[in-house]
Design a binder for these strands. Sequence first.
DNA 1: GTGCAATAATGAATCGATTCAATGAATGCA
DNA 2: TGCATTCATTGAATCGATTCATTATTGCAC
Lengths: 346, 346
Amino acid sequence: MAKRVRLLDVAKAAGVSQGTASNAFGKPDLVRKEVRERILEVAKELGYRGPHVMARMLRTGKAGALGVVFPDNLEYAFSDPVAIELLRGVGRECARQAVNMMIISAENPEQAITAINNAAVDAFLVHCYSDDNDIISAIQRRNQPLVCIDTDIAGAAGTVVLDDFAGAQMAAQHLIDCGARKFAILSLQANKAENFGPMNAKRRGAVSHRVVRERLGGYHAALKKAGIAIEDIVHIECENMSSHSAEMVETMLRDHPEIDGILAMSDVIAIGALDGARAAGRKIPDDLKVIGFDGIAEGERTDPPLSSIRQDSVEKGRLAAEMALGEAESDSRVLETSLLVRGSTR
Amino acid sequence: MAKRVRLLDVAKAAGVSQGTASNAFGKPDLVRKEVRERILEVAKELGYRGPHVMARMLRTGKAGALGVVFPDNLEYAFSDPVAIELLRGVGRECARQAVNMMIISAENPEQAITAINNAAVDAFLVHCYSDDNDIISAIQRRNQPLVCIDTDIAGAAGTVVLDDFAGAQMAAQHLIDCGARKFAILSLQANKAENFGPMNAKRRGAVSHRVVRERLGGYHAALKKAGIAIEDIVHIECENMSSHSAEMVETMLRDHPEIDGILAMSDVIAIGALDGARAAGRKIPDDLKVIGFDGIAEGERTDPPLSSIRQDSVEKGRLAAEMALGEAESDSRVLETSLLVRGSTR
DNA sequence: GTGCAATAATGAATCGATTCAATGAATGCA
DNA sequence: TGCATTCATTGAATCGATTCATTATTGCAC
């Protein structure tokens, strides 16, 4: 293979200094028009392909890219509807700022750390639930701006979270207003260690995932206020997959026929719950009210359409990107939620 | 800000050559254990953050990333279910090969070209419909492996496409088998220039998007064989959005009450068609059969569930990534489709 | 014609690693 | 003891740009 044509070669051939040749490409207004044109012409003749990206990066220190990390589960980034909305928002802001989007990919945590160390980016965005994490430390070691989404980590440059507590409270209050009295909570995974199924008090007390902790707190607060004892609530921890929650709910409803209100921590789980309830012979919303969390588009098409707590995940991603790229005003934002009433509670 | 600690600083402090220090990090087995440990220790003391990514890239010429470009519409990449599956596949392969995934982001074609020129990647993957494209040229100018998905472009290192013709043929044949005789085809955008609505013969003759050309050809072939004249088919070009196709279909069904079979070039369009047909008072599948294309998961939950031509978009993305990263056997692959019969044609 | 400012161009230093031919030391074998 | 071989280390060259202090040129006003 022929040796790559360098800027220096172009400069020599055009009879100008390397500095001028560089400016002809990067800062055209610093070079006299005719000189610049000659340089570009010579460049074309020699087959120069434009400034070498890596060399420029090394010199300028700018990568022109934002790193996006999903430590908990990487396949999840392109599967979960909420994660996808998040990515859409990140992409939107990156496009606005003319910065590329580097998705850190890995099959396991160890690989992820290597991937992080090899990524030429200017800042990191990390979406995760747990806050104790080798991956987070690896990012922090790079000493670049880091914005955390959905969790608050000490030392992060910024944080974007939801007011999960208030949202959950709203959800539970809504079910109470609809007349439900016997509740089941379908929780997202609460800890690093998987432990799906009924959730005992001990595990409820040791929730390391911020989102789960807050939402659980919000549910409990509203229910308590309505005079419902926490011990009377059925807690189940579900994988964030409709098929999984469907199974769980079907079983659960057979064991606890009295349940008339289901609080699901995600719409994906809630959609499965609708299926499970149908399989267990319940009529929704007559026998049983179900409310999800997130307000994803799929919730419009379920049978019946799913009530939920709407969050703006696109904006969440966009905002986080904006922060990471250093254009945001504050370094910590809490987004609000709103109640979305549809057929599953009406 | 204190000056960054360089490898050279570490080497000096540890009393070894820079080469040895480099090896201590990059090729540990070339350095005696005690020496390596001392180097690492000194590095930690000095606050050395590990080899500088950009410097390494410049020297080695490897970026450790795969560029992914969506020239037609960038927001689309995180909106369309099929594009997302594609990304999932790409992500899977990238993870397997320990390579990051650089999503080229831009708001307009001009910006996209800059973004491409600024991206430190080892290869490119491009998903697009049209084959004449400034963006493609920009990528080709970089002289790196380029794999095209869903279109075949001269000079690409590889191509991954679907047997769209056969799939479309299968779809049309299925509707014929179900007894439909009066057809409407809901096409994806056929050309760079947007022109949604009824599609005249002239526009049908000048389809620049390969996918549309092939699928249209497949539909026509099957219908012709069944003795249906092309002129009797209603052609409508839709935006790939359910809400848009719903409107189009509702209007279309009022103008053409005889239609009893709808061939949609995507499931997204088909799902809108179900809504539009319902709004126009049709019963599916009794009055009207509808079949989509792609076989996306959402099709299971529509009312009625959507028949479709299934394609494995995840595998399409994975395979393309594999090719681009240079591990695939061949440089051109055509994937097969299969018929997915559900409620909308039964 | 002189002085001053503005504009162009120069060329060497720099960004921070990796690589590789050369050298030195240590080991194995006859 | 001598020679070949292996293992560890060195140090300079290299990857390919950008930057910036300096010099050269031009234009303009008085």
